[in-house]
């Protein structure tokens, strides 16, 4: 990794942390707050690609682990990884990597705007919704022993919010690519 890649990842990690200072919205009494931070995770993949985006999210998780209250609502510390919803948190890393990888595959600078936005949307949907939620559900079901079906139903209420975030990530990703292209190109 070049110094520039390292700095880009660190700056994006700082953006994700800053997004956590927007207050989270609790939906009903299902224990996963809706945060702008998961939007930041999708953006990391869409804008920086798999490698640097994944590293940016890894840095955020590292900051959580070493006891800095960088998650929304001032959460942090190792106890966060002991929470029943830790699967969603660890899933962020895989979400950023998958989103980044798909973005590099789907989106090309020569495409027209609508195709690019659709490509970014699909990438963010696959990484930020499918992968992250799958890991979150698996861990929640494992920890509580309630079974996959129950965990899946509990999860469903967060899907619309995250689909909306994938849409925002796609529009923002395309706007950033026009203004300051960073996404590595892959054949």
């Amino acid at each position: 990794m070049t110094t520039r890649d390292l700095v880009l990842a660190a700056l994006f990690a700082a953006i994700i942390v800053a997004l956590g200072l927007v207050p989270p919205i609790m939906l009903g009494f299902i224990p996963v707050p809706i945060t702008a931070q998961s939007l930041g995770v999708m953006l990391a993949g869409v804008i920086l690609g798999a490698k640097r985006g994944g590293f940016a999210v890894l840095l955020v998780l590292l900051l959580v682990a070493i006891g800095l209250p960088v998650l929304s609502g001032g959460r942090g510390g190792l106890a966060t990884f002991a929470s029943p919803t830790a699967g969603y948190l660890v899933g962020w890393f895989f979400a950023a990597v998958v989103t980044g990888y798909c973005s590099e595959r789907f989106v090309d600078r020569s495409q027209n705007g609508l195709v690019q936005i659709t490509g970014f949307f699909l990438a963010a949907l696959l990484g930020g919704v499918v992968v992250d939620h799958a890991l979150g559900i698996l861990y929640l079901a494992y920890v509580t022993g309630t079974g996959l079906a129950t965990a899946f139903i509990g999860d469903l209420s967060f899907v619309p919010g995250d689909v909306l975030k994938a849409m925002i990530a796609a529009l923002a990703g395309r706007a950033v690519m026009v203004g300051y292209p960073l996404l590595p190109q892959r054949a």
């Binding site: 700056l11 994006f12 300051y180």
Partner: peptide, 25 residues
Amino acid sequence: RPLTLAVPLIILTLKNADEIAAAID
């Protein structure tokens, strides 16, 4: 709006990367 806020924030921040990297090197 989220979009009109996020896009300039990200571009402004990431544009610093070259200078910071040069300073580190």
